[in-house]
Design a protein around this nucleic acid. Structure first.
Lengths: 339, 339
DNA sequence: GGCACGGATGAAAACGTTTGCAGATGATGG
DNA sequence: CCATCATCTGCAAACGTTTTCATCCGTGCC
């Protein structure tokens, strides 16, 4: 089913059919109507490969995430997809599994498919790979870490803000021994959150206790293990801030396995506010990342660069907000006396 | 960066470069080496659009799911993606949001991108849409419901088996008042599970109680609402089988909101065994769907049709298995006396 | 030494579009 | 009535590959 067939049946040239379909230039209403009719009848639709080949535009946007299995990402993907589709773009999603080699494969795929821009929400991006994209003039937007270079935008999330809110919340509940379970420290974004946490503690005059800073890997199991180790170390915290919700869920599980209860013995705060956070037991107090705004801003930044309007970084800092549910409560009475 | 450039620098024709890259026909090792060297140097990679245009093969497989936000799907997608990538295919994922109009859009996209086959795990497929694909000779594999027609395969999941196991498990624990919360009954797959449930009950000589069959929508909220309504109706069940894990989570929440506890007052069984099921509180007893096998079988069935080896339906029935965790326990003593 | 053969290569056609350019047609103004 | 112009349409060239067919060259055989 090619354009030629349509042209033949409508008694016009293929050029006219093309123009009608893309209404790229004025075509006589009568002719157009006839063409459309044939198009309908035949169920014709253009071959997108031929189309992109000649026009040089693929109308595809890439989205690279670390782990599609982490519920935060599907929710983000959905948002991104919605706005992309709405603007006539398709998206190509790849997940890297936090693996650098696999990341290279992702980039290669993006390149091969000639994506017009790519949104990146993962931090295992080697400079090398970024360069590969930059070199091909593929606009990028980073959703997580601050990038360097031109043609690269980023939408920054104010992690520090979220971390501060969480810490303040815990402090106001009387907690003084507050632990943190980070993401894999190989990732920049994980280090950022960790640093923000330590800084917050410091600001409020709380001494750092090495035993109270664990390392997870953004999965439930990682949180479970990290927390289990921490509990074994002694010097128990009265509250834990986890670097994402999955980790928080693992943390709660570890606490419970140790025969303690959340939040009475140990309060737990998550990060992301995945949809499921509302339905854990107890419902998770967590720092909400504005997923939809994130998706929209990212898309916006990308499109602006795709259209060549701006070559600069853009996108403001997105605010995060603490959502208080039931996994936090006042510290046991003389919690301060400890240490 | 076109093939011509490579050809020029290597001092050969573009035909030779093409042959070298695809090693589609014998090329002199010396020449090949020279070509590869240039390819490396230039970082050349073929334009996939031009390639597909002429070869007629897109090397893309479509995957249509209902809701990427339901954790079951990302896990499935990942499996499918892994095996596809491993075989040199890429995948294009679309989610339908259980919406028929959106489904049409998905199909259209698949068609436009010239996917070589599509795996469908959603049941809001109008016959109309299936025909559109069939008419274009796009091989399909259904992962959920039994399809009709040729060029269409399906991988059947033995829902009845899972439902039976679950019911037997509950019966063996002494439960007699067992409730069921289905998915949206507009979906065939939801009806199948529901029918299986009623049949199982019947087989074991338990009378059906209309009050004990609710309708959810495969989301946590849906489960929560359905269970809340059911609890309000009176004639409480001692156990509930939910049609998927999300629904089960909602159900547990509803039970707890009503001041009852899981599993002491009401046992809950889920369906799917999403990764998170292990980490709910209490850990969810659920019927495990073999995700990886499902992905592999689906891919296999698809590939077989893509290569034109078989035009028939294939793929056996996949077994499901009950995973017993802690959301189920023996029914309160004289549970039988009730009713 | 001629011939057939086979392996390696190149020329060119095809894939299905978009788009620049030019031609046709009809209308308008002088 | 001719010139100008606007509007609409068609021709043909690209886009970057794969692939068929033909060519070329060297080799081994008679």
């Amino acid at each position: 089913m090619k354009i030629q067939e349509v042209a033949r049946r409508a008694g016009v040239s293929i050029a006219t059919v093309s123009r009608t379909i893309n209404n790229s230039s004025v075509v006589d209403p009568k002719t157009a109507k006839r063409v459309w009719k044939v198009v309908e009848e035949l169920g014709y639709y253009p071959n997108s490969q031929a189309r992109s080949l000649v026009s040089g535009k693929s109308r595809i946007l890439g989205l690279i995430v670390s782990d599609i299995t982490n519920p935060f990402f599907p929710e983000l993907i959905k948002g991104f997809e919605d706005v992309a589709i709405h603007n006539g773009y398709e998206i190509l999603v790849s997940s890297t599994d936090y693996d650098s080699a696999r990341m290279a494969v992702c980039v290669r795929r993006m390149l091969e498919r000639k994506v017009e821009g790519v949104a990146i929400m993962t931090s295992e991006m080697d400079k090398h790979l970024v360069d590969q994209l930059a070199h091909r003039n593929v606009p990028m937007v980073f959703l997580d870490v601050r990038p360097a270079g031109e043609g690269i935008s980023h939408v920054e999330v104010d992690y520090a803000m979220g971390v501060n809110e969480a810490v303040e919340h815990l402090l106001s509940l009387g907690h003084r021994r507050i632990a943190f379970i980070s993401g894999p420290l190989g990732l920049k974004s994980a280090r950022i959150r960790r640093t923000a946490f330590l800084r917050a503690l410091n600001r409020y005059g709380i001494d750092e206790d090495k035993r109270l800073v664990g390392e997870g890997d953004h999965t439930v199991d990682g949180g479970l293990n990290a927390m289990t180790r921490m509990l074994a170390l002694g010097g128990l915290p009265t509250a834990v801030l986890a670097s994402n919700d999955l980790t928080a869920i693992g943390t709660m599980r570890a606490v419970r396995r140790a025969g303690l209860s959340v939040p009475q013995d140990i309060s737990v705060v998550g990060f992301d506010d995945i949809r499921l956070a509302e339905f854990t037991e107890p419902p998770l107090t967590t720092v909400r990342l504005p997923r939809n705004e994130l998706a929209e801003l990212a898309f916006g930044a990308l499109i602006r660069n795709v259209d060549g309007q701006a070559k600069t970084r853009s996108g403001g800092k997105l605010e995060t907000h603490l959502v208080i549910r039931e996994s936090t409560c006042p510290a046991r009475a003389p919690a301060v006396s400890e240490r």
